[in-house]
């Protein structure tokens, strides 16, 4: 490629960060914050920021849970059903069995990982796209959960647990749930960036054949991704239980569908490739923040409760189109330089 010197505006003077879509997202987040704080009352109020932090925390976690499966080039439709099932299991442990909170949390996370393992195992063994596998397990998990709980909620959870969900930190602005989510982001970033296993996961997702040839067990990596997804979904389930103060079978909607849009929006906005092999932990975090902001802002602007979905759809469409345009221009630039 050498020989021709690129013109000054296409060399590396522009920091790489500016070209990434994390940067674009950051700008968008700032722009939306400005718009909403000027055009609505109460956007910057303590109450609203606290409410936002509780919602964002969950959206980040759900987005990460989807992201680690998208890494394999697959999808996890069972995310919501899995998270709610795990949360209901936790509610049962605490309320009916009287198991202490810390042990319950460990059990719930193990249970979530196990359900994720089922997804991964069936996907890998049948070679069928995870879309269809998780479509099936979604209705299986949700069906079993409704059957076993008889659609009854667990409302008498230990106070220490529910108090944590309504705790207010930093001058009563931030929920501790958000701190858990942000910490999870850092841990995942560390895993994918600096650990052996994280690099193997990415390699397996990016090019399964090449990874297999270089001695990575792709099947095992894919199962790990699904287990990690189950783990994070279960964590999201616990967080939601703490936030509501009860474990309710319908807290993620029918079949857990309410979680699906934020789950896809965050990683896709964040620049995770749907074909697999590329993850952006902080992109996903920014994506989740953007979605929550817009959602919240739309309510405050008063577009009407029923139109919020419409605008979210438009925004998802706009975001993927913008991302496509960005990709197109960066590819053109990289060919030139």
């Amino acid at each position: 490629m050498g020989g021709i010197k690129p013109p000054f505006f296409m060399n590396n003077k522009i920091p790489n960060f500016v070209k990434t879509n994390q940067f674009g997202l950051l700008i968008l987040v700032i722009v939306f914050i400005c718009i909403f704080s000027f055009s609505t009352d109460g956007f910057t109020s303590r109450f609203n920021i606290y409410a936002l932090s509780r919602v964002v925390a969950l959206d980040i976690m759900i987005g990460l849970a989807m992201m680690v499966v998208i890494l394999t080039g697959g999808l996890n439709l069972s995310l919501g059903a899995l998270g709610v099932s795990a949360a209901m299991f936790g509610g049962w442990c605490m309320e009916s069995m009287g198991i202490p909170i810390s042990i319950t949390i460990i059990l719930v996370l193990a249970f979530g990982s196990f359900l994720g393992w089922i997804n991964g195992f069936v996907t890998v063994r049948t070679g069928v796209h995870s879309f269809i596998v998780t479509l099936a397990t979604m209705s299986i998990y949700f069906g079993f959960m409704t059957l076993l709980t008889e659609a009854e909620a667990f409302r008498k959870l230990p106070e220490a647990f529910t108090d944590f969900g309504s705790l207010k930190l930093f001058n009563k602005y931030i929920s501790p749930l958000l701190i858990i989510s942000v910490l999870t982001c850092f841990v995942l970033y560390y895993i994918f960036k600096y650990t052996d296993i994280g690099r193997k996961l990415i390699a397996a997702g990016a090019n399964p054949d090449a990874a297999e040839l270089s001695g990575i067990s792709v099947d095992r990596m894919f199962i790990y991704c699904h287990m990690l997804s189950g783990f994070l979904a279960a964590l999201a389930g616990i967080m939601l239980t703490a936030r509501i103060g009860a474990a309710i079978p319908s807290m993620a909607g029918h079949l857990g569908f309410d979680w699906l849009l934020p789950a896809f929006l965050a990683p896709v906005l964040g620049g995770t490739l749907l074909s697999g092999g590329k993850v952006t932990v902080f992109g996903t975090m920014l994506g989740a923040i953007l979605v929550t902001l817009i959602n919240n802002g739309l309510y405050l602007i008063d577009v009407g409760e029923f139109w919020v979905r419409f605008f979210l759809g438009i925004i998802l469409l706009g975001a993927v189109l913008l991302d496509r345009a960005r990709e197109y221009f960066t590819v053109k630039n990289s060919i030139v330089s």
């Binding site: 896809f264 749907l274 029923f306 469409l317």
Partner: peptide, 22 residues
């Protein structure tokens, strides 16, 4: 756009459903 139909129809799912509810 060459974007996967999964994402496009997920977005239009919300658009059509949102219009319906609106």
């Amino acid at each position: 756009t060459g974007i996967s139909a999964f994402i496009i129809t997920l977005a239009t799912l919300y658009i059509f459903k949102g219009m319906n509810l609106g």
